[in-house]
Design a protein around this nucleic acid. Structure first.
Length: 598
RNA sequence: GGUGGCAUAGCUCAGCUGGAUAGAGCACCUGCCUUCUAAGCAGGCGGUCCUAGGUUCGAAUCCUAGUGCCAUCACCA
């Protein structure tokens, strides 16, 4: 906020000239709604330097400001708060200066450094669920926000395409599948593979209980169940490059990818670069060898390699097994380095991963730092809370997950029901309607998830469907549609000149609602920056909601197209247009589309 | 047990670097569609900001201790 620095300078000047004291800083805050004024300077902190009655001091400063600054049109002092009234001209000038700016609030790509944002990173043995949705929405949105804040961004994911979990699905398919394919069954590929993962687990559990009933200890049975041993065998064959196993692996993964692509497309997320664990799982071993030489790591007697992080308040952590194979940490070290090699302009990475892995990333970043990588300073774990159901945690194997595709369909269906009840779109074609229902349903879902601070846990109750009133996506979309309706009408009324009108007369007296709206508009650029710094789409969501609330209040209290004064009418249309643009940009950052009508 | 996160209205959440009588939405109650889309607006009801200390002119916010919930502490990820 430019005006604040002007005021700060003047307040210091005032204190210097009236009291002969230098103030180090001046504290400002937006004036509370119930007082007159726009910006408030807090007098209390000044008492440390200026002795006296805060009310008197505030008044003296206020008088000085009003006399010296055109922007200050009035003031009042309540207790230790100097409420400053900023002139309408200042707000009009500001609005005029930005009203034709495209992408207002966004910073064009500046600087050399790029950031890589990783999100999604699913396993290929089961379909995506609600937890992945939160992950995807967060990662995608943060990537967009970083872009808008001026960074170059690469979106990526590492696909967990190998390991025992996928062998379980493969084995079950071999045993019970009878050659079923997505084509033969009409099932989405990821769903089909997921079914076999569940089938494996069913058989596995049955074997365990049978063994237990035959007198085995449960823990032993869990390790020795025949089907599990078979899966392990399969994994070994895969690692040895067995043709049949690798062939099946490729086939089944290709089904899954096709299914994922569909889900991603529906969800509206995308990636610039994919990494596959089958390519990266051997990475990192040479780095460990290197670190061993440098003394970052040490070797235990059994040959396993560790790092001692006890001086940093953490524990000892293994980075290589005694048999020389990699653990996850090894891979993650290797993959991080690989990425910087692939994209040399990367200086920073964001990992969108649930908070259950907080410790892992703390360790990973610390290891990379100890290995001496300069970019290790700008690594960030975008840690988010779990999405839980009223019944507790979601478990794929137990079928207690909320499936991503189903959820999106349900939301679209709910949107359709509500829309049809309201019946405003009779002239839309079926496909137009369908598209709109999807837009609204997904808008509701995405907003619902993104408006919550990422680090907080979300309790999702499928019984109580996501709201469409109040602080919701559809409410904001609705406001956007209303604005478009005004703009269409404005064109029809031959007000087309409003786009290019400049140089509003300073004589216009702003309506209180207009002023509030401009103030809210003014906050958009700093909101983007702050959302980027905090990796928080929630800040964008909350800002947009405040803006929209302000707009609706304005819309209801003043007549826009019915305003007799031509200049005021034009200003109001322009304000509406700008608010619409901001809603659209802000929602783009959240990955939510906005409708022309609804 | 060690470590980390969270705790604000009946429910879901805001609350920026400490600042004025702690804000929204949902739900409940009352008004407002002959006027730019009522998925809206205006208003009412509703709070020991988990507890106890401390720092400060001033604490939901910072510090300490405790309580509750969650996660994590594996040659799992």
């Amino acid at each position: 906020m430019q005006i604040q620095s002007v005021l700060e300078k003047k307040v210091k000047e005032a204190v210097k000239s009236i009291f002969g004291v230098d103030l180090p800083t001046v504290e400002f805050q937006p004036t509370r709604k119930d007082f007159e004024g726009d910006i408030t300077a807090v007098v209390f902190p000044m008492l440390r330097f200026v002795k006296g009655n805060p009310e008197v001091i505030g008044t003296q400063i206020g008088e000085y400001l009003q006399e010296q600054l055109d922007e200050v049109s009035g003031f009042n002092v309540v207790k230790g708060f100097l409420n400053i009234v900023i002139s309408d001209v200042f707000y009009l000038d500001f609005f005029n200066s930005i009203k034709t700016t495209n992408d207002f609030g966004c910073v064009a790509h500046a600087g050399e450094d790029a950031v890589m944002v990783e999100y999604s990173s699913p396993n290929t043995n089961k379909p995506l669920h609600l937890g992945h949705i939160r992950n995807n929405l967060l990662g995608h949105s943060v990537a967009e926000i970083l872009k808008a804040s001026g960074k170059k961004v690469y979106k990526t994911q590492i696909i967990n395409d190998r390991g025992i979990h996928i062998c379980k699905s493969m084995l079950a398919w071999q045993k019970f599948g009878k050659g079923e394919t997505p084509e033969s069954s009409g099932l989405k590929g990821d769903k089909l593979v997921g079914n076999y993962y569940v089938a494996f687990d069913k058989t596995y559990k049955a074997e365990i209980s049978k063994m237990v009933s035959e007198g085995k200890v449960k823990e032993v049975a869990e390790k020795e169940a025949p089907i599990l041993l078979e899966a392990h065998e399969m994994l070994q064959k895969w690692e040895a490059g067995d043709e049949e196993v690798v062939g099946l692996w490729k086939t089944m993964n290709s089904w899954v990818y096709k299914g994922f692509d569909e889900t991603y497309k529906n969800l509206g997320v995308d990636f610039d670069q994919l990494y596959f664990e089958s390519d990266t799982y051997l990475l990192g071993k040479d780095v460990v060898a290197d670190g061993l030489k440098k003394g970052v790591f040490y070797k235990k007697e059994d040959g396993s390699v560790w790092i001692d992080l006890t001086d940093d308040g953490l524990d000892e952590k293994i980075v290589l097994r005694s048999d020389g194979t990699a653990v996850y940490m090894t891979q993650d070290i290797g993959t991080a380095i690989q990425r910087v090699t692939d994209y040399p302009d990367i200086n920073g990475m964001v990992y969108t991963v649930g908070n259950e892995q907080d410790y892992h990333f703390k360790v990973l970043f610390l290891i990379l730092k100890k290995l001496g990588f300069s970019w290790s300073e700008s690594l960030h774990h975008l840690s988010y809370g779990m999405v839980d159901l009223p019944s507790g945690k979601m478990k794929s194997r137990e079928g207690t997950v909320v499936d991503a595709d189903d959820l999106m369909d349900d939301m679209t269906q709910t949107a359709a029901t509500i829309s049809q009840e309201l019946g405003k779109l009779e002239d839309y074609s079926d496909s137009e309607k369908q598209e709109l229902y999807r837009m609204i349903g997904l808008g509701a879902l995405k907003y619902y998830i993104l408006k919550v601070d990422p680090k907080k846990r979300i309790l999702f109750n499928p019984e109580e469907s996501v709201d469409f009133h109040g602080n919701t996506g559809p409410f904001i979309q609705y406001t956007y549609a209303r604005i478009q309706s005004i703009l269409r009408r404005a064109v029809r009324l031959d007000l087309s000149g409003f786009e290019n009108l400049t140089g509003l007369e300073n004589a216009i007296k702003l309506h209180a609602k207009e002023k509030e709206l401009i103030k809210q508009i003014q906050l958009f650029p700093e909101t983007i920056q702050s959302a980027a710094e905090n990796f928080s789409p929630a800040l964008i969501a909350n800002y947009t909601y405040d803006l929209v609330k302000e707009f609706n209040s304005f819309y209801q209290q003043v007549s826009i197209l019915g305003e007799p004064n031509e200049q005021k009418k034009i200003l109001r249309v322009q304000l509406s247009k700008k608010v619409g643009e901001i809603i659209q940009s802000a929602f783009l950052l959240l990955g939510i589309q906005v409708p022309e009508r609804m």
